[in-house]
Amino acid sequence: MALFLNIFIGGLLIGGIYSLVSMGLSLQYGVARVFNIAHGEFMMFGAFVTYWLQSLGVNPLIPTIVIAPLFFVVGFILYRTVFTGIRVRSPNPGVFESNGMLAAFGLYFIVQNIAVLIWGSTPYAFAYLNTSFGIGPSDFRVNRLVAAAFAVGIGLIFYLFLTSTRSGKAIRAAAQDSATAGLMGVDINFVLALCFGFGAAMAGIAGTLICICYPISTTMGLQYTVIATVIITLGGLGSIPGSFIGGLIIGIVYTAVNYWQPGLAVAACYVIFIILLLVRPKGIMGR
């Protein structure tokens, strides 16, 4: 019973954070068609900015107010410069996806090594709300609860934005069929850049949450990108609820494997990925 609670609730808490990481990637790949390998690097940068600000005495949740708009602008500009350039030059969407991913690899190396040059490659950690609360026989970390609640809150706000505002509807139209949406008068370049920007902003916020719960290092990004890839494949591309369901499932699986053999946790994610690609490549919420 205690083990079940540990895995289930612990998994949900971690899954909440994973969902936020993957929501950004889901927007970037699902709508903007850029498989952003550098997604985890944006997250890492967000985490380090948070670390830096908290070392100056700021509450570690406050930096999100700065990080979100900053990362949004960076993402937006990146898409309007690099990725739109590639899109214009690509003869078909397939070529754009391949070249976009390769450019994202370039971005990955650039962002990561700028961070390494600034912060080195040693890990950083600090204690924030480092206590536990009990549910039945099990103990859980308070900082994880805060982070997961924060992630769910942001997910909800964004979901409301998508379903009830004009820009949100334009994004959803672009996700379904960007060519038709363009014909219907949606400024497609603007909308896609918007999505990429939102993706980057979410990565930044996720970085803050990661920084609260886990130690951070400049080389941690790729690991989260891989997990996020599995989650968006599981949940369905471009689907916000899908990212959440996928995130929670992977969170629970990850925690369960961690209880059994921590050395195989990433391998387990990958096995799920293989099975998914073979059985249902669209994912749970995919169309």
Partner: peptide
């Protein structure tokens, strides 16, 4: 444990259940 492990709750929870006299952690600062 793998080098990129982040979540130690499973290890610590299991150790709490087993209640050993001595706990050895042979890993790096990370």
């Amino acid at each position: 444990i793998p080098i990129n492990i982040t979540d130690f709750d499973p290890i610590v929870n299991e150790a709490k259940d087993l209640n050993p006299d001595v706990f050895c952690m042979f890993a790096y600062p990370d």
